[in-house]
Design a protein around this nucleic acid. Structure first.
Lengths: 280, 280
DNA sequence: GCTTGACTCTCATGTAAGGAGAGTGTGTAA
DNA sequence: TTACACACTCTCCTTACATGAGAGTCAAGC
C-alpha cells in the first residue's frame, strides 16, 4: 500500500466493494474502462485514481438511474441544466412511484381487511379499470327488481331488431337508486342499456345516448347472485378503504345471461364509477 | 351476447382487457388454461366463466405479486393462514420499498441542493456503505496537521517491520478533534492506524486494537486536498440533509499516497460513521 | 522448471413479465 | 375469395448483473 500501482480486476473490485462481474459489466456498458488492457492476456488493469469514477457511478445508481442514463450523466461536457433536468425528472418519477406503492399498500391492507371480515378467501376481486364511453339504446323505468330488466331488455331488442341493428356488447344495467320495498315486491329505478355502433333516433321510450366512461372499480362473479348484497358491500368497503369516492350510479354488465342458460353459469360484472377522493 | 358460448382467444382477451400474448403467457405459466383446446387446429377456447379467475389474477398482480406466487395463491386448497401470511409479507415488503424510495428521494433532493450551492457539477459523490471492523496497529498523538501523520506512519511501519508483519490495507487516519491553530502551525489529535491480520501485543506508544465497523458515509477524491474543507463540508451537509447523525470521528483512508507519488495522483477516501437519526 | 491454486479471460444463459416483430401455415366469416 | 384471426416457432428486447463452462495466466512453493 502507499505505492502507485495498477490493480487487477479482483483487487479493484475489492477496494471498490463491487463484484468482478459488475466491473466487467460496467466496461461493456462504457461506464468505466480499465486504464490498460494487456493485449497478450486480455487482463484488465485499473488504477486507484479510477475509484472516484466508480464511486460516482454507484452514487448515481443509488439515486435510481439506469446504467445508460449514468453513462450520459458521466459525460464531461454535460451542461449543468441537463443534469439538473435529469435529477428533477427522477425526483418526480420517484415521487410518483412512492404514491403508486402507497396505493398498492392500501389495496393490500383492504384485502387483508376483507379476509378478516369474511373469515375466508375473498370471493370478490376488485380491480380499477378504465372503461370507454359507449353508445347505447336504453330504457329507463322503475321496475320490479326481479325480472324487471328482462322486459326492458326484450323491449329494446325488439326495437333494435326492427331497425336491423345488432348489439355490440353485453347489456348494461345502471342502478339509479337503491331498491325500495313496495307491497308487491322490490322496486328499483334502473336503466337497461344495450351497446350499439350506429347512431339513430330514439323513441319516446327508448333513448339513444352515450354512457360515459372513466375509472371504474369492478368485480366479476359467476353464478346467480340476485341481490348482489355481498359484492355490493365488498365493493363499497374497498372504495372507502382505498380513498375513492363514488361519482355515479353502479352498473351491472350481464356478460353471460339468458333464458336458456343455467343460472349457475351466469357471469356478471359489477362496476362503480369512482374518482380519487380529494385529500382534505 | 347473452348466449352461452366459447370465446376465441382474441375475444376473451378483449372482454378481459388483456393482450392475446398475455393470455398465452398465463397458460404457459399454468395460471389460466382455456376451457377447451381444439386438437385439430390448436385453437384455444375460453368460457366467460373463466373471467372471474382472470380478474383475480389481475387483482393479485395489481397487489404486486409475481406470477409464480399468484399460481400458489390460486390453488384451491390454500390454507387461509398462508394466504394471510403472503399478504402480510407483501405488505411489509411494500412498506420497506416505500421507505427506501423515500430515502432515495431525499438523496436526490440533497444532490440538487448540492448542485445549487456549488453552482456546478458536484465534485464529491456520497455513498452510504457498510464497513467491516478491522484490527490495526495504531498510534495516537496531537501532531502537526501537515506531515504529522508521515512520522506516525513511519513509526508504526518500523514497529511492524520489526515484528515481520505486513499491512493488509491502506492506512487509516481517525481525526479525533477538529484542528486547532497554535503558534507554529495547525495541530490535530489524530490516530494513525495500519490494518494487520495477526494479533500481537502493543507497546506503550503503539496500540493493537480493533477499529469498529458499521455504516459510513463515504466520499473519494483524487488529488491533493490537504484541508479537505470542501469534502468535509459537502459530507456534512449530506448527512444533515439525509437525516443521519454522526456517531464517531471521521476517518481518512490513504488509498494511494507516498513519497514517490505525485500529489496529483493521491487518492483519498473520507468516511463519517453515521446512524439514522432518531425521528423525533 | 514444475505443479498448484487462485485468478482471469470470453462466451453463453438465466432472471420477470411479457412486448415487439417476423415467418409460415391454417381457420373462419362476409 | 379475400381479408382477418389464430396457430406455432423463433428471435431480440427490457435491468443489472449472477452463474457456470472451458481455457488461459500469475505467483509461490518445491
Amino acid at each position: 500500500m502507499g505505492e502507485r500501482s495498477l490493480l487487477k480486476i479482483g483487487e479493484f473490485a475489492h477496494v471498490g466493494q463491487v463484484s468482478v462481474v459488475t466491473l466487467r459489466h460496467y466496461e461493456k456498458e462504457g461506464l468505466l474502462k480499465p486504464l490498460t488492457l494487456d493485449p497478450q492476456t486480455g487482463y484488465r488493469y485499473y488504477a486507484l485514481e479510477q475509484l472516484p469514477r466508480l464511486h460516482r457511478i454507484l452514487a448515481l445508481k443509488d439515486l435510481g438511474f439506469p446504467l445508460d442514463h449514468i453513462a450520459r450523466l458521466l459525460e464531461d461536457d454535460l451542461p449543468l441544466e441537463q443534469l439538473q433536468g435529469m435529477l428533477t425528472l427522477k425526483q418526480a418519477q420517484t415521487q410518483q412511484m412512492i404514491t403508486a406503492e402507497q396505493e398498492r399498500l392500501t389495496r393490500i391492507a383492504a384485502r387483508l381487511h376483507q379476509i378478516e371480515q369474511e373469515g375466508k378467501l375473498p370471493t370478490y376481486d376488485m380491480l380499477l379499470k378504465q372503461v370507454d364511453a359507449v353508445r347505447v339504446a336504453s330504457y329507463r323505468a322503475t321496475v320490479l327488481f326481479h325480472g324487471g330488466f328482462e322486459q326492458s331488455t326484450a323491449r329494446i331488442l325488439a326495437y333494435l331488431h326492427e331497425k336491423q341493428i345488432e348489439p355490440i356488447g353485453p347489456t348494461i344495467i345502471q342502478l339509479h337508486s337503491r331498491s325500495e320495498q313496495r307491497e308487491d315486491g322490490l322496486y328499483i329505478d334502473m336503466e337497461t342499456a344495450i351497446p350499439i355502433s350506429t347512431h339513430l333516433a330514439g323513441t319516446e321510450q327508448i333513448a339513444i345516448r352515450t354512457l360515459s366512461g372513466g375509472s371504474m372499480v369492478s368485480t366479476i362473479y359467476a353464478g346467480v347472485n340476485l341481490l348482489m348484497g355481498q359484492a355490493y358491500a365488498a365493493l363499497y368497503c374497498w372504495i372507502k378503504d382505498n380513498g375513492y369516492q363514488i361519482i355515479g350510479p353502479p352498473r351491472l354488465l350481464r356478460l353471460q345471461h339468458g333464458e336458456h342458460i343455467d343460472a349457475s353459469h351466469y357471469v356478471t360484472e359489477l362496476q362503480f364509477p369512482v374518482a380519487r377522493q380529494a385529500p382534505n
